[in-house]
């Protein structure tokens, strides 16, 4: 999500040099920027885009997992999954509020998601086919999210950084519950082990794509680094994720679906095979396996709940009118 949020984010800005220099000096001094502080229009625009996309990813991210709550194999797993999905909803809400401090309304943000104008992470356009997918999502998808989100706790924009601190505190449980599922399956029957391997095969490459395009193909990245919206490049974070994850897969006794994956003593990290960027762009542009389903589900939820929003507002208006009437007596 997160680093994909900067795809196409145009940090172009038109303030005079003195203003930009003073702003950069604050950033370089590690001073946080708060909502009412002067900031370049490009900084504001980039952040609204990234935070909103991050929020949308949390919300749409509830769909593949939410689908499994009723089918969790035990009550323990069901309670954990329910709590995790609820957390993701919470993450979306923290992030929407952070974006709103920059002057965009919640309604506009939701509208941008539902109209397809705003994107969410490519990863949520893949289906969760078996129970092992739920383990893999927690392990890899939340694992990749954590890699991305930890440096965001030091993002130069105060409200985003604070929201990320809350989110990061909650994420660790998500990854652990996923890994525990994988551990159980990989220590289970042959069928269960095969199910775990199959899920890893399908989720590994899309998880690597979560970090966004290679640095060389990643436009506007330099400006975001200079403004300290971003602290590490896409490739740096992807490498960290791979290096942390390969030993975890080995512990499970599973094989990474990448024949070119091997330890590189010199760089002190793993080399990996080429990522299928055509697939990545196809999914980003709307042609993944589940893009249409996900959007359909979000729009349906929004429409089906319209009457609740209307009723709540009507009730609040009536109660307020009654209070004014009583006060006037």
């Amino acid at each position: 999500m997160y680093s994909q949020g900067l795809i196409g984010a145009d940090g172009a800005t038109h303030e005079d040099a003195a203003f930009l220099e003073a702003f950069q000096a604050r950033i370089d001094a590690e001073l946080k920027i708060e909502p009412n502080d002067p900031m370049p229009a490009g900084y504001r625009k980039t952040l609204v885009r990234q935070i909103a996309q991050h929020a949308h990813s949390e919300i749409v991210g509830m769909l593949p997992e939410g689908n499994w709550i009723t089918r969790a194999p035990t009550l323990r797993r069901k309670a954990a999954l329910l709590a995790k999905v609820q957390d993701e909803g919470g993450h979306g809400l923290y992030l929407y509020s952070a974006a709103e401090t920059l002057g965009v309304s919640r309604e506009e943000l939701v509208d941008q998601l539902l109209s397809g104008k705003a994107k969410y992470s490519s990863i949520f356009n893949y289906p969760a086919i078996t129970w092992a997918d739920i383990g893999t999502i927690g392990w890899l998808v939340d694992g990749a999210a954590i890699m991305n989100q930890i440096p965001l706790c030091r993002c130069s924009f105060g409200p985003y950084a604070r929201a990320m601190i809350r989110v990061c505190k909650e994420e660790s449980f998500h990854q652990r519950q996923g890994y525990e599922i994988m551990l159980t399956l990989s220590r289970g029957s042959e069928e269960q082990k095969a199910m775990a391997q199959d899920a890893l095969n399908r989720w590994w490459w899309p998880s690597l794509m979560m970090f966004g395009p290679h640095d060389a193909d990643s436009t506007h990245s330099d400006q975001s680094m200079a403004w300290k919206i971003k602290r590490f490049t896409n490739d740096e974070l992807r490498q960290k994720f791979i290096d942390a994850t390969v030993p975890q897969a080995e512990f499970l006794g599973l094989t990474m679906p990448d024949p070119d994956m091997k330890w590189n003593e010199e760089k002190g990290g793993y080399d990996h095979g080429e990522i299928d960027w055509d697939e990545f762009w196809r999914v980003v542009k709307g042609d993944g396996i589940c893009n249409r389903d996900r959007m359909k589900a979000r729009r349906k939820a929004h429409d089906d709940n319209a009457w609740v929003r209307e009723a709540a507002l009507a009730y609040a208006d009536k109660a307020a009118a009654r209070e004014t009437a009583v006060a006037a007596e």
Binding site: L93, Y94, S97, A98, R166, A312, A316, A319
Partner: peptide, 12 residues
């Protein structure tokens, strides 16, 4: 202060 949210009235 921990953040903000949307609601129609104080109870919600």
């Amino acid at each position: 202060h921990v953040g903000s949210l949307h609601a129609v009235d104080s109870e919600m």
